[in-house]
């Protein structure tokens, strides 16, 4: 490929960077709070809820993300068109399954749903480990000072958990930025999609290397950001 072609390709790929970042950002936006909720559900003293949550985490971590994306994507049309589908559910699914021009919206939502469900499970385990690593004495000190359970969690426990989960979370977040390329399998038009397409057009590996460079830069920026965050929280032990 000529350098002009490469430059053109770079410009083209930049346009496809946005969908990648959109999936990445939206996944974090939902998966982190959901992960916290799942962590609390798993630690819940009401055992059936704890077991159910555990089962969910086991499935999410024990099966491939790609498979989960495909299942979520096709579940709506498959269940809707099944003969045994109750009418109420069918109406609901018909409203979920957008077609035609809105097909892309449906695709993005389903891919996002799979990513969020999957990543929430991983975040949940990280958060649970973080919460359980806080010494019991912190809860007791808070109780003696009259803090309610909610105040204790948000003012005393959570800030300390954040510091403790940053290293493990940074791994997940960096994995996520690369995992967004799996959305390519559903035809989601992101960096991987355009790289593969241009590879065929130019019969060249260069587009793939360029795509790799994009992911590499994103992962490196994230690594640096997490490094900064760790440093910022280094004022206490």
């Amino acid at each position: 490929m000529t350098s002009e072609e490469i430059l053109h390709l770079l410009g083209l790929m930049l346009q496809y960077l946005m969908p990648t970042l959109k999936l990445f950002g939206a996944t974090l936006l939902y998966a982190i709070p959901l992960g916290m909720v799942v962590a609390l559900m798993k630690m819940c003293r009401f055992k059936p809820l704890s077991w159910l949550t555990n089962l969910y985490i086991l499935i999410m971590r024990g099966t491939p993300l790609l498979l989960q994306i495909i299942v979520v994507y096709y579940s709506v049309p498959t269940i809707r068109s099944s003969a045994s589908c109750p009418a109420g559910l069918r109406t609901l699914l018909e409203r979920v399954e957008l077609k035609g021009d809105a097909g892309d919206v449906y695709m993005f939502r389903m891919i996002l749903l799979a990513f969020v469900l999957n990543y929430a499970a991983y975040f949940a385990e990280i958060f649970r480990g973080g919460i359980e690593s806080i010494p019991k004495g912190q809860y007791e000190a808070a109780a003696m000072l009259g803090f309610t359970r909610l105040q204790t969690f948000f003012r005393i426990i959570l800030p300390q958990v954040v510091k403790r989960v940053i290293p493990a979370s940074s791994n997940e977040v960096i994995t996520l930025v690369k995992d967004t390329s799996l959305a390519y399998a559903m035809g989601y038009m992101e960096i991987m999609y355009i790289a593969k397409k241009q590879m065929t057009t130019f019969s060249s590996l260069t587009p793939l290397f360029l795509a790799g460079a994009f992911y590499f830069v994103m992962a490196t920026v994230l690594t640096m950001l997490f490094g900064l965050a760790e440093k910022k929280l280094d004022y206490y032990k």
Binding site: P135, G137, E140, M144, G146, Q160, Y236, K237
Partner: peptide, 27 residues
């Protein structure tokens, strides 16, 4: 009632001052 613990149980993420003011202001 106040309780002073064997291993202090101060809140590590708060300054000394905030360790002391947190309960009066919040509770």
């Amino acid at each position: 009632t106040g309780l002073v613990f064997q291993n202090f149980n101060l809140f590590p993420h708060m300054s000394v001052l905030r360790n002391i003011t947190e309960a009066p202001t919040v509770v």
